[in-house]
């Protein structure tokens, strides 16, 4: 055996003192990888309908594949963003109540923004 001082059960569970292991770290990176593709697709799509009129913009958004990609973008973006802002707040906000309040407010805003975006895409895609 190596010099690992943890007991074998703790090592097998691999969850550490915070009981969630590396899930935050891993999710930050998996969403990052997803966003590489989603954001480049988004920029390409926006550039392809530059200066388009309302009907064209709406028709583009309504295409099923575009709607799927947009919803994927919104959800991945807000998941990635809350993870990132959480770390920044935990690192730099040293007044405990302010830290907790910021963490909660960030998540509330992110959820509302994500739902607003998803609803907008669905309204257009489903034609109401």
């Amino acid at each position: 055996m190596s010099k690992d001082l943890r007991n074998p059960l703790a090592r097998a569970r691999g969850l550490g003192s915070a009981k969630e292991g590396v899930s935050h770290w891993m999710l930050q990176r998996v969403t990052a990888l997803g966003l590489v593709f989603l954001t480049l697709w988004f920029i390409g799509t926006v550039l392809s309908i530059l200066h388009a009129d309302y009907a064209t913009a709406r028709a583009t958004l309504a295409k099923p594949w575009n709607a799927v990609m947009l919803i994927a973008l919104i959800l991945t973006m807000y998941r990635h963003l809350t993870l990132g802002l959480q770390v920044v707040i935990e690192d730099y906000v040293h007044t405990r109540w302010l830290e907790v309040a910021s963490l909660v407010i960030i998540k509330f805003i992110a959820v509302l923004a994500a739902l607003t975006g998803v609803l907008a895409v669905l309204r257009v895609a489903l034609g109401s």
Partner: peptide
């Protein structure tokens, strides 16, 4: 990387605004 991440987080609201405006 952190600074631009924070700014991107704010910028994400512009995307939501744009999508919501199409729906509206």
């Amino acid at each position: 990387h952190r600074a631009t991440g924070i700014i991107n987080a704010v910028g994400s609201l512009i995307i939501v605004w744009g999508l919501a405006s199409v729906a509206a």
